[in-house]
Amino acid sequence: MSHDISYTTEEIAQLLKISKLTVYDLIKKGDLPAFRVGKQMRVDAADLEAYKLKTKSTPRNAEKPGSDKPGSAAADHAASPSPVNGPRPIVITGQDVSLDILAKHMEKHIAGIRPLRAYVGSLDSLISMYRGESDIVSTHLLDGDSGQYNLPYIRKLLIGSSYLVVNLLRRRAGIYVRQGNPHGIVNWCDLKRPGLRIANRERGSGARVLLDEQLRLCGIRPHQLNGYETEESNHIAVAGKVASGEADVGVGIEKAAAIVGRVEFIPMIQEQYDLVFLRKPENQEWIDAVLKILRSSAFQNELSAISGYDLSLTGQVLFEA
């Protein structure tokens, strides 16, 4: 029966032919009720059908010009920042496990909110914040010309917004090679050697931006790398391709190499993994609470148990727009 069926956010996106971030936005606004199973959000089939019936029954002219005047139904809906019958969803984007730990601490210590996780890359995360689809975004994007992480991209994408940039952690990124490093890779420019096969990340991910910037600085054209157009969705998948012999090199973080094994990691850069918050009056209370969590010994002790994290700047405000 339909009440025994529930869907993941990915399945909802496919059924409604919308993006996954739009699904999170519907959940965030309270238009689509959802519940958590472990780290995953799910929507009951009955709630999905109710949402579809509601949108079908909404008159086409319900939001015609002038309908958002004070006292109208549209204005009343817009004035309500969150559902009155439940906690406010807070969408957190990014793929690192530290964000799952942060979400767990937020759920435990901050009343009136419900953390939701969206597993998307750094560039897509910033774009989602610009569109109003996320509340906390993580980013680790290198600007090759300045050698600076994140701020050059944030300034360009969040034009006109008031925001706060806070460090979550730092971690080593570099190149995965097969055991024994048979091709003798020691720096970025060695990637121009003929015949190398690369396991690449998806566009918009921090690792992809890191690779593209280093290729540019070394004067290497992407099409010179075999496998450049083949994309993997996470660091572990890239390291796995190298470990299995399907690729000779890949770019990612140290932790994934330790998890996969049978692959060597050549550290190349200490990357900065930051969080971005939009500064709005209605956000300030929970932002202050998140900063308190980031600086707490309980949170940092849990992160310190994971190898490869540098927490020396965790919770430090790096920039205020």
Rank of each mutant, 00 (worst) to 15 (best):
A75F: 15
M106P: 00
S161A: 11
I154N: 03
T58A: 10
P70R: 05
P81Y: 07
S67H: 12
H109C: 06
V37M: 15
L99P: 02
I136T: 02
N61D: 15
D31P: 08
A62T: 13
T55P: 04
S57D: 15
D31Q: 14
G30K: 01
P70H: 05
G38T: 13
T55S: 12
I92L: 13
M106Q: 02
R117H: 04
P33E: 14
D96E: 08
A103W: 02
D76S: 11
S82Q: 08
P89H: 05
N85I: 04
L48Q: 10
S67I: 08
S138D: 00
K39C: 05
A45M: 12
P83W: 04
A73N: 11
D44H: 09
V91H: 03
R117T: 00
S80T: 15
F35Y: 15
A75G: 14
K56D: 13
S134I: 04
D76G: 10
K69M: 12
P152E: 07
S122T: 02
S80I: 13
M41H: 12
H109Y: 11
V120I: 14
R88S: 09
L126S: 06
T58H: 03
D143S: 07
Y51G: 11
E107D: 13
A74W: 14
I136H: 02
I110E: 11
K39R: 12
R60H: 12
P115E: 03
V97A: 07
G144K: 03
S57I: 08
P87Q: 01
R155G: 00
V43N: 05
G94K: 05
S125H: 09
R60I: 14
G66Y: 09
G147Y: 06
A73M: 09
L126V: 05
L53A: 13
E133N: 15
K69W: 12
T139D: 01
H140Q: 02
A79C: 08
N85W: 08
S146T: 13
L158F: 07
H105G: 03
S122Q: 09
V91C: 08
Y153T: 05
G30P: 10
V137K: 00
H140P: 03
F35V: 09
L142K: 07
L102Q: 05
K108Q: 15
A62F: 13
A111K: 07
L151S: 00
G71P: 12
G160C: 01
S146I: 05
T58C: 10
G38H: 15
L99A: 03
V43T: 10
S80K: 14
D68C: 09
S146R: 07
R114K: 04
F35L: 06
I136N: 02
G112Y: 06
V43W: 01
V137H: 00
